[in-house]
């Protein structure tokens, strides 16, 4: 494999730095430029080795005036699992009351990452 430069927009914060990632012949990250904070560098490396995203969506909730409970993964999950994770959320039915931060799924698809409630939902 040849050496290569990949550009990415950092999504860690609203600044949106343009990152240049220098890849070595082995495909590993050699140098990151364009970031303005250490988190940008970590993001760049992760984009090459293990790209991850926080997933936000909804699950069904019963026993409340709300139809849906917004949820998110507590941490970023592997990017290629986003659609599979959405399928998992389709199956879930939560009973009100729910508190923000309550765990909705303990271990999402074996990632070890929980899905948590994103708001309070009172019982009807």
């Amino acid at each position: 494999m040849n050496e290569q430069v990949i550009t990415k927009t950092c999504i860690v914060c609203p600044v949106g730095c343009e990152l240049s990632i220098q890849l070595g012949a082995d495909g590993q990250c050699q140098e990151v430029t364009g970031h303005r904070c250490p988190r940008g560098q970590a993001y760049a490396i992760a984009e090459i080795t293990d790209p991850r995203r926080v997933l936000t969506s909804t699950v069904a909730v019963a026993g409340s005036e709300h139809r849906l409970l917004p949820v998110r993964t507590k941490e970023a999950i592997p990017k290629d699992m986003l659609f599979a994770a959405i399928q998992e959320l389709q199956k879930v039915l939560v009973k009100a009351p729910v508190h923000v931060g309550d765990v909705v799924i303990e271990d999402l698809l074996g990632t070890g990452i929980p899905v948590i409630a994103s708001r309070d939902v009172k019982s009807a």
Binding site: T9, C10, I11, V12, C13, G16, E18, R53
Partner: peptide, 12 residues
């Protein structure tokens, strides 16, 4: 919109 939203909402 924000550049990061172009990246994570469209490019992804």
């Amino acid at each position: 919109g924000l550049t990061r939203n172009v990246a994570q909402c469209l490019d992804d």
